[in-house]
Design a protein around this nucleic acid. Structure first.
Lengths: 236, 236
DNA sequence: ACCCCCAATTGGACGGTACCAATCTGGCAC
DNA sequence: GTGCCAGATTGGTACCGTCCAATTGGGGGT
């Protein structure tokens, strides 16, 4: 009962079928897939569009559709810290530093589209991977949308809690990445020498209406973490 | 003479039409756009698909299609340093540090999919924005694909040169971003105190067949540069 | 006033068909 | 053998139609 849509099922079937194939292996033609799976060519193209966007295949008009060589990594998708760590074969954990309701302030208010005097819940956590520090995470949520959050169990996945308890589903996020010099508090918590470099990610999580729901600043240890993603040429 | 495809023209027309509209303004219904522009609904959906992927609109089944609020930035697209700087209202410039043919070595060879003993052209440049240093750029290209490159004029856009002279069109790139502590040479060239943090971007440029064409390592000044992009939830 | 339910509306999915443009292939001329 | 051209193949674009699923808004009952 994965995706009930045919194009989604077909996408997964094709992805499974080409697993292990060497790069540049041709897929069956669109008309052949269409006949073989008993779906229209439109549906086939919809599935292939998704695979192409994900960088799994490439298409050449007049020639065919081919398995793309995966060089470094797959395109970055929105993941929680827990998912991210498990994808890197690390065991995620968490130490709660603070959870309180505070005034939003100018920057957070602007990011969340609320007034500077509105209240936000701030959750500050030290995130661990395989038992040792990986990053400092500072989440801000509009207090009006998450009543009683500060009293919940915040040791696990915050994303799961937001989805299940508060029906806030974060579909996309805008991120700003910067390198910073860690201050004394930060380097002490992360267990690295003072003055070391850190990777700071400011993220604004958006719901399916592209409205801001969450503003998070995360500071990663430079020696243990990197960000991988694919960029493509696009039209203006 | 923009995009000759109807869905592409329609996409640009819709984008222009909604310029200036406040967020959450509803677009006409798909059936209405279809009738008004004299195209099929499929074509309309194709145009809207592109706008949705770019984060310009969002769609709600049963409700309509709406102008998306742009919070921070638009989704990152593949740009050259020159384009990138101009988008930030800075004037790009370049100082050539070295241009030579060398052995690829293990890491570069792996990134480019060639043998470690194959030759590559290495172009090392200090890139400036508004006259002061912004980053150190180290480009590696397979020597076989760019004969005579080291003798060309390398003060301008390398991407343009690759496209026009060597017919290498880079369509996408995979990037790995990391924070690093700058060494003495780097901090001296960039004009920052020794031991400062820097943002290191390792990029592998791919052609339309997703084959590696170029491997570049760029080290940006942490105080002048950030990376902005949008991530979306996706299926496995 | 309030609530609930149903019908209209809107985007989502799928099928079919036709033609175009880029590519590849095989055979022919040289 | 080499080079070139014509036709077959393959993805790209566009049209049509049908039905489904989520949302919305208004009408009727309480």
């Amino acid at each position: 009962m994965a995706g009930q849509a045919k194009h989604e099922e077909l996408r997964q079937a094709l992805l499974a079928a080409m697993a292990g194939s060497p790069p540049h292996t041709p897929l069956p033609t669109e008309r052949e897939i269409s006949a073989r799976h008993g779906v229209s060519r439109n549906t086939v193209r919809q599935a292939l569009d998704a695979l192409e966007a994900a960088g799994s295949v490439y298409r050449v008009q007049g020639a065919g559709t081919f398995v793309a060589p995966s060089v470094v990594s797959k395109s970055l998708s929105l993941t929680s810290f827990s998912e991210d760590m498990r994808a890197r074969d690390l065991e995620p954990a968490s130490r709660l530093l603070a959870a309180q309701t505070v005034r939003a302030g100018r920057r957070i208010a602007e990011q969340l589209g609320i007034a500077p005097d509105d209240e936000v819940v701030r959750v500050s956590r030290l995130r661990l991977a395989d038992g040792s520090p990986m990053c400092l995470e500072n989440v801000h949520l509009p207090a009006a949308r998450v009543p009683g959050l500060a009293e919940e169990d915040l040791s696990g996945s915050l994303y799961d809690l937001l989805t299940e308890r508060y029906r806030l589903d974060i579909r996309s996020a805008e991120q700003i990445v910067r390198a910073v010099d860690l201050d004394e508090t930060e380097s002490a918590l992360l267990g690295v020498p003072p003055g070391s470099a850190g990777l700071r990610v400011r993220r604004v999580g958006l719901d399916r209406r592209e409205s801001p729901v969450e503003a998070t600043t995360t500071i990663y240890r430079a020696d243990r973490y990197d960000i991988r993603f694919t960029v493509r040429r696009s039209q203006p």
